[in-house]
Design a protein around this nucleic acid. Structure first.
Lengths: 158, 158
DNA sequence: TATTGTTATACTCTATAACTATA
DNA sequence: TATAGTTATAGAGTATAACAATA
């Protein structure tokens, strides 16, 4: 009942993870596009879902140049997905917040993505899913330690 | 000896895989950029490493519009990474092949990427790596079946 | 007529450098 | 002077629509 695939050439660990990474990234891109969002617009809205950062804080979350963030927020604001507010404590700073429309879009995109991915991993048995989750999480923790950050400190959602 | 992380909030399977996907994608991007390549240029060269496709075939491998492929190949050709040849059997068609320079670049990028990823998964025990590889491969196989293609038919390398 | 590929055009995304306004 | 953010500009990447050359 287990394996129909012994005839197949085996993938290396790195190749299998890399292909899986492309698979997930492509799904995320598809579902974002279905909500009329690019991946980076989706990341922006995901960050804003439970934060109200300044432009400068956004450059750190997104790891982009400040001018890139200006353009990104410009386009999102023009579409009514986010709005800029002035910070009363520092009049140089600009705070960005998500609008109801932006929240609706990112919610529908992440829901659809999550539903599709859940259906995919449903092909594994429960204990296999748990194992996969544990192994993936351990790799994330190792990487976070290598980078000197706490994996669970700033989960930026999708 | 096993787990120091029971205090941490657990990630869902989907979240763990999604974050891992971002991690790998970011690494691939870094190593590509170190070789002065974008991810898509790297994919192009990876495909050309063991193929000599027409422009039309490239649009299928890359899942891009033909005009996008024209631009992609234009920029790669301008940099001396690929060259266009005429197809003698169909004089409408254009065959694309990699140059020695292109091959050097993609080899160094994939080698560096693979080395870093191998070091990361080396934090797992051998039997855990095997399990992870098996589970990831099974997800890829399910997805390939859903899409009606053979996973092992057209591995486009990285 | 259908297919292969390019060109013209437009938009997103990204970065560098120069700039404005506030601290 | 230093910091927060924008503007000007340039280039990669992507797509749609119109086109040329060949089948």
């Amino acid at each position: 009942m287990a394996s129909h695939r012994s005839q197949q050439p085996a993938l290396s660990t790195v190749d299998a993870l890399t292909q899986l990474s492309f698979l997930l990234h492509g799904r995320l891109e598809n579902h974002s596009r279905a909500a009329d969002l690019s991946i980076v617009q989706g990341r922006l809205l995901g960050i804003l879902r439970d934060r109200r950062p300044t432009m400068g804080e956004l450059t750190k979350f997104l790891d982009l140049d400040k001018s890139s963030v200006t353009g990104l927020v410009d386009r999102a604001e023009r579409r009514g997905l986010v709005r800029r507010c002035t910070d009363d404590r520092d009049r140089r700073a600009t705070v960005v917040e998500i609008t109801d429309l932006g929240r609706d879009l990112i919610t529908s995109a992440t829901t659809a993505y999550s539903t599709e991915l859940t259906a995919l991993v449903a092909h594994l048995r429960p204990h296999e899913r748990d194992t996969l989750t544990d192994l993936a999480t351990r790799l994330l923790i190792v990487d976070a330690q290598n980078r000197g950050v706490d994996l669970f400190a700033d989960l930026t959602d999708v």
